[in-house]
Design a protein around this nucleic acid. Structure first.
Lengths: 346, 346
DNA sequence: ATTAGCACTCTACTGAATCGAGTGCTAATC
DNA sequence: GATTAGCACTCGATTCAGTAGAGTGCTAAT
């Protein structure tokens, strides 16, 4: 950023990062000359590494140890990967072939399967967020009378995601009345987003003062609620134990805070929101994500879509020291695969 | 079992267990005389403890350490608690008052809340299994046509638990036809268990050869599936991180295997099945449950009911060294509370 | 039957010594 | 001027002996 690095420095920085990602041990000048061939002696490498440290790309855990990449260092490396992206990285065999996503009517199962696949291929934690309610297109809405004052509302999105909710009403409705109403809604609203439905319902309520008002009101309430509270959004998180294999979490205290984070899924969901308005894979390194930072974690996420409309998000959480060059294309690929599979299902 | 213990030995055994549960340190004869008053000297206690060890109730981790209860020791202690059960144990304030279960139409939310409550009150892992399909009474069954060849089946139990499933059919059905069929099913089957419904459906298929056969077939299939595969049963597991506070899991390796167990919920679900046919709270100590044994864990479980019919199971998983005297009544109380709350909801 | 006393055992902890990996600096070399 | 060889130095990790402390078992006295 501030200073530009010449090619040689860049190569050495990359080499340090690769070596550290592989071994998790601080990298010394001698080790570097052994595993890579720069045509330079350890002493020269030392000088360059000292420069890189001064510029903030590397860190020395203690005076007599090798060097470890700083977040700035990782950022430099990852930005390189993201911009060149496909050329050198595309051919990575990230093992996704062994697992595949099946067309299915069980969308939740599919999403869970996806997060499992992510976790298996990356050896990190796979996360998948269910489609945002605001962005789903509705295929079917149905009202079913269960018993006095209790009505079951069933929403089905075009993707085939089913959401149910029982609501309590002040008045009673005959099932016939509800059926007519269900029919009316499906007739008008098929293929709209919840947001659009809400607007239309409000319009309708002015137009049609009497007959349907109570029913419209009834439909409106849970819809508005969903829009505001993001109710019904779920996070599938698989492979949490994978991360225990990483040496940075042999420290029990680190592990505890991390697992607490996993248990509080809400924070992760908020974090995933960040990637709704941006294209492509996004990487958040260490403290770049406010609350995972303390946990020495990075986040690689992107969104999956219907056409151009982002539906939900997916990605992985792993140690900062993760194989970005493998994981980034994996996340990218998985998102495309899921988008495609969902389109088939619908 | 084999030898009977006199009162004095019993008291000392209990004292050792209580002390160990509190401190997690091996208990020595001197410590014992300090915290309890037996009117005996350390030397006498030593003799008795040596006897208890010989009988297998206590274990010495190494020759110069204090003693630790064996599984047999815990078993003796817990059996005592379970038989005397209410008298001495009933008044424990296990902190459940601070949390309460609310009548709600969101049954899954209620179950999750219950497991969270269990985990908070016990500082262990709270588990709740959704009602078994076989035992639920059905309140409503509805078939909704989503699109060609795709029908959404909605089941609602008397407890208000909603289950949906999309199935693919070979033929098309008019929604009207489906509605008539839904009505027919609700008329006949309200208040029956799935098992009963299945039998009735099979009967019906012989009686009424033509018109409904295809529809009956369609209804039968997912029901049979649910019965066989226990599909749709879910396990809510909360507070996994609580267990990390226990000193026995400062060993990283132990923790890993335990968390893997948690991630494989299926095994725990199978374990919970054990308590369906027995009354009251059941305690499985250490290796008594085949697969949690290696993890130094105990299981305290019971079932919740509708009337006399067991619906689902709940309980806690904790370290062998857990406060049984607090946890057993807690689990008992929570099960009653949940049963009651579910009855209100329905 | 109980207990005081004593010798003994074993773990956990402490501090010194050593090893090794790695650095920075300086002077020599290409 | 850039590169490198050589060297002194630093610091973490490991090892090892020594010590303190908790607890036991046994024996003899009460």
């Amino acid at each position: 950023m501030t200073e530009d690095l010449n090619d040689r420095s860049q190569n050495i920085l990359k080499a340090v990062i690769l070596s550290y990602i592989r071994t998790a041990y601080p990298v010394g000048s001698r080790t570097l000359t052994k595993t890579f061939d720069f045509g330079l002696s350890p002493a020269s490498i030392r000088n360059i590494m000292a420069d890189l440290e001064e510029m903030g790309y590397l860190i020395q855990p203690h005076p007599s140890a090798g060097r470890v990449p700083s977040e700035k260092g990782y950022r430099f490396y990852v930005d390189g990967l993201l911009s060149e992206a496909d050329p050198e990285v595309k051919n990575y065999d990230f093992g996704v072939q062994q697992y595949s996503l099946h067309k299915t009517d069980d969308v939740r199962g599919l999403l869970q399967e996806t997060s499992r696949m992510l976790s298996l291929c990356s050896h990190c934690v796979g996360i998948v967020l269910t489609p945002k309610f605001t962005n789903m297109l509705f295929q079917h809405l149905q009202f079913i009378e269960l018993r006095r004052h209790h009505i079951l509302i069933v929403f089905v999105s075009t993707e085939g995601l089913v959401q149910t909710k029982i609501i309590e009403t002040d008045e009673d409705f005959a099932q016939q009345e509800l059926d007519r109403f269900s029919f009316f809604l499906n007739d008008r609203f098929k293929g709209l987003t919840l947001q659009e439905i809400r607007t239309k319902l409000l319009d309708q309520m002015w137009e049609d003062k009497e007959s349907y008002n109570r029913l419209l009101q009834m439909a409106l309430e849970p819809i508005s609620e969903s829009l505001i509270e993001a109710q019904g959004e779920e996070l599938y998180l698989e492979g949490a134990t994978n991360i225990l294999e990483q040496p940075e979490f042999s420290n029990v205290e680190n592990m505890k805070t991390l697992f607490r984070t996993f248990e509080e899924k809400y924070n992760i969901m908020k974090l995933l929101d960040k990637c709704f308005n941006s294209e492509g894979v996004q990487v958040f390194i260490g403290s770049e994500n406010a609350f995972l930072g303390t946990n020495e974690c990075s986040l690689v996420i992107t969104n999956y879509k219907r056409g151009n409309q982002a539906l939900g998000a997916l990605g992985i959480i792993g140690p900062i020291r993760m194989e970005y060059s493998r994981v980034i294309p994996l996340v990218d690929y998985t998102a495309r695969l899921l988008s495609q599979t969902l389109a088939e299902t619908a």
